[in-house]
Structures are given as C-alpha cells and as structure tokens.
C-alpha cells in the first residue's frame, strides 16, 4: 500500500505469541514508527491486545523477538525497559484507598533506588505528569472516587511519570462514554505532539482510531492485513475483508479523516 516506514526503535520480528498451547499471533513483523501515534484495529480475538502485550514484554514470545533499539527485550532488564517504554494494560485496577499522587508516584519506580524513594526531581516530574493530565487538583483524592475518564487519565499520568519515550495503551477508552473517549484520545495525541512520544494503542472504534492516529495497523486472525495512513487503511474493501462489514467511508468534516458508515454485517434478520 505504501513504502515500509523507516525502522523504528520498537520492532517485532517474526513474532509468535500465544496462551496455553494456542498460537494467537504467528510470524508477525512490525516496525513501530517513531514519534507517531499508531492505532491497531481489528475484530475481537484477532490478537491486537496480544500483540501489544508482546511489544510490552508482558507476554514472552513463543518464537521470534521484539527489539528495542536493536536489542531483544529478553536480553534487557525489565527495569531498563521500563525507563524506555511504558505500558498501560486493559482496565487496570488500583487497591482501594490509593491516591492519585501516590499512584502516579509509582511511575518513578524504575528510576529509584532503595535509599532514594522520592527525590525532589521525582516530585517535580510527578507534578508535571499530573499537570499534563489536568489532575493536580485531584492529586490527594483516592483513585476509586474518580470518574471513569479521570481514572484513565490518572493511569496515563502514571505512565507519563515514567518518562519513557514509547507509550503502549491497550484499549484506553474501554467503558468510557464518547466525551471521555475523546478526552483521553486528545490527551494521547497531545502527548505525542507536544512531547514527541511514540504511542501504540489498541482501539475498537475505527473512526476514532482514524481521527487520532498517524499510522494504522489492521489485523485479522493474528496477521497484519494492512498498514499505512488512516486514509490508506480505512477503505470499504478493507472493512469488508477484515471485519466482514459492508460500509461506506466518508471524509469527516473537520480534517477530512476517513469516517465509517456501517451498512450491514451481512446478517439476515
């Protein structure tokens, strides 16, 4: 579809991943474009979350490898990886009573020593991460008392405090209403635009993914079917092939990004 992007810092090479004897992804190769927002889309069970877990060393490869700056993740200490790459799992949960500032402060863990539990510099970074996610006023509130969107911002804030260049987000908009979904996605895009962070996120909503990403990866049955700019990837043919969805694609009125109008999933009812 388009020429392959330049080799990025984070790459998957012939990666095979799976759980309990079943391969979910086999022989996948991907180079994550640096300083861009990449959205991974695909139907349920296509392996997009599994891919993200593999990229974030939460799931060790069956075969193949994931490399960061050319080094296989398996050869790097998990602590070192945590300074370069932060991961936000799907629906994370905090123990009750944990405050926002306390949660975000844990993002400093990979850079701390036992006698250096929270330096002045740590405090400044945490305050900045809270400011970037507009949570300074809620710093001392328990996480469980926040609204869904605020809670997701608190978790993103924790990954920001890690000061890692690469941010992996697994369905960061799950369970959020539309306004909060947009709030989180604008935050993510802002982190990329203002701080140059590389972002990879798994998203369900194709139109929102097209709106807030620079690069899109469409997956089906553990393979990458297409990748490229949103306009290259989000086409009626691809939606039919990947999702089995008959749809029209129209440019949305603000930036002309592709917007999906579903026509039918082929179900006769």
């Amino acid at each position: 579809m388009t020429e392959l992007p330049l080799p990025g810092r984070l790459r998957a090479e012939s990666l095979t991943l799976g759980y309990d004897g079943r391969d979910i992804i086999s022989g996948l190769t991907l180079s994550v474009p640096d300083a861009k927002v990449t959205a991974v889309i695909g139907p349920n069970g296509c392996g997009k979350s599994t891919l993200l877990r593999g990229l974030g060393r939460l799931l060790p490869p069956r075969s193949g490898r994931v490399t960061l700056d050319g080094e296989p993740l398996a050869k790097l200490s998990t602590r070192h990886i945590a300074t370069q790459l932060s991961v936000l799992p799907q629906t994370p949960s905090a123990p009750s009573g944990l405050t926002v500032a306390d949660l975000v402060s844990r993002g400093r863990h990979p850079r701390q020593k036992w006698y250096q539990q929270f330096s002045g510099a740590d405090q400044a970074v945490v305050a900045e991460a809270l400011a970037a996610t507009d949570l300074l006023d809620l710093a001392d509130h328990p996480v469980e008392e926040l609204s869904g969107g605020q809670r997701q911002r608190a978790w993103i804030s924790m990954t920001l405090a890690q000061e890692a260049g690469i941010l992996l987000l697994d369905e960061p908009t799950t369970y959020l209403d539309l306004a909060h979904q947009v709030e989180v996605l604008e935050l993510v895009r802002g982190l990329n635009r203002r701080h140059g962070r590389t972002v990879v996120m798994v998203l369900h909503d194709i139109s929102l993914a097209a709106r807030y990403s620079d690069h899109m990866v469409a997956m089906k049955a553990g393979r990458i079917v297409a990748q490229g700019t949103p306009a290259e990837v989000v086409t009626p043919d691809l939606l039919q092939e990947v999702f089995g969805l008959a749809a029209q694609v129209v440019p949305e009125p603000t930036e002309g990004r592709p917007h999906v109008i579903p026509l039918g999933a082929g179900l006769r009812v």
């Binding site: 405050t99 500032a101 402060s105 405090q123 400044a124 305050a127 900045e128 400011a131 300074l136 001392d140």
Partner: peptide, 9 residues
Amino acid sequence: RPQAAFRSV
C-alpha cells in the same frame, strides 16, 4: 516545573 507537595505522598 510545578513544585507542589502532595499531602498523600
């Protein structure tokens, strides 16, 4: 950089 101290940390 904001230098706020946190009551909970």
